[in-house]
Design a protein around this nucleic acid. Structure first.
Lengths: 189, 189
DNA sequence: AAAAACCTACCAACTGATAGGTGGTTTTGT
DNA sequence: ACAAAACCACCTATCAGTTGGTAGGTTTTT
């Protein structure tokens, strides 16, 4: 939106701060991770961080928005390439597991944001709403191609993905992909 | 374990603190709710709260333990009474929805506790492990009675319950019970 | 020279926790 | 029956550390 006045080195710093903030928010939550923590991780002072983001809340917003942009179109593309809906879903999860930091971020923050006063509350409401629409229409497509049973539903699929991720994050030995397969079996045509 | 030296008035206060802590932890998380918040809610000073619980961490432990005790045997009893597995599961969820504060507590804290350094990390690891065993064996029983399909699995059921709760907490208009029914349809025999 | 990229030096508010009390109730010794 | 000792339920005052954020200056890049 606003015209940025960032040099190349400045833009790089911004990315660096964003990365550090994502890592720290994902581990300690938004309320648990301080500006000092973020600043220390990139070798700056808190004031240095606030030179790039006017407030901690703005930093959070930037972190969230960054990921939201890339996530939405990904699934359909993968589905087209992977061939089967099942394979695309497995790849989605494998991709999430490879980026455990991002997964933690969303699991941690979505729970924290259940509080209506949380700065990310509206973000996650909106995200789940669009996410339900997306998965519902994607499942409809899969149904019409005979790839999944008619009983499969978007909100349930989202719940399975979220819930299994929580269990995996708590206990990395938990066989997430096997349980995902278990669910996909139940909605096989 | 240790012999308590609490008068009746002291025991009542203790309960009161426990209730307030549960409410506040459930809304703002463990890290987001302060001893001052808890103290203020029951009309005490922080030092007054620490008279009953030696530390904030001990207070959290007490809050968690309090709920864990009553939850475990509940499901099987309900199942026996309700008749069908499906009805018992729906009653479990209806019960959780009636106690939204407790639901928030576990959704909020289980996500926060993904961090290995979180004081409740081990508690939730243990809880999910036993919970998986419990639901797995319960599902086995239901399968042998022909109440659910063989494809139903404990970890997936837990994921569905958890995931749907998160969506409902974020958006109270979300029809949790309908989505739960959708899932139960997929594991109908 | 202008602007970006920081820094130091703060600030008020809040964090969990401790020390050392005060007033009331209960228990004990006689 | 009655005082003294013990104990419980808190309090005030304070601590050192951390929080997000600001003001204003200095260095580096363009």
């Amino acid at each position: 939106m606003a015209a940025r006045k960032l040099s190349t080195v400045g833009a790089a710093r911004r990315e660096q701060i964003l990365d550090a903030a994502r890592d720290l928010f994902s581990i300690k939550g938004y309320r648990g991770a301080s500006l000092r923590d973020v600043a220390a991780q990139v070798g700056l002072t808190p004031a240095g961080v606030l030179h790039y983001f006017p407030s901690k809340e703005a930093l959070l917003a930037a972190v969230l928005q960054q990921r939201d942009d890339t996530d939405i179109p990904w699934f359909e593309t993968t589905w087209a390439q992977a061939g089967s809906f099942r394979e695309a879903t497995r790849e989605l999860m494998a991709r999430n597991m490879a980026a455990a930091g991002v997964m933690r971020l969303f699991v941690t923050l979505s729970a924290e944001a259940v509080d209506p006063r949380h700065p990310a509350h509206e973000f996650f409401r909106h995200r789940y709403r669009t996410s339900r629409e997306l998965f519902s229409s994607t499942l409809d497509k899969a149904k019409s191609r005979g790839e999944v049973s008619d009983t499969a539903m978007g909100p349930v699929l989202i719940a399975v993905l979220d819930g299994l991720q929580t269990q995996w994050l708590l206990e990395p030995d938990f066989d997430l992909l096997a349980s995902l397969d278990d669910y996909l079996d139940t909605i096989a045509p």
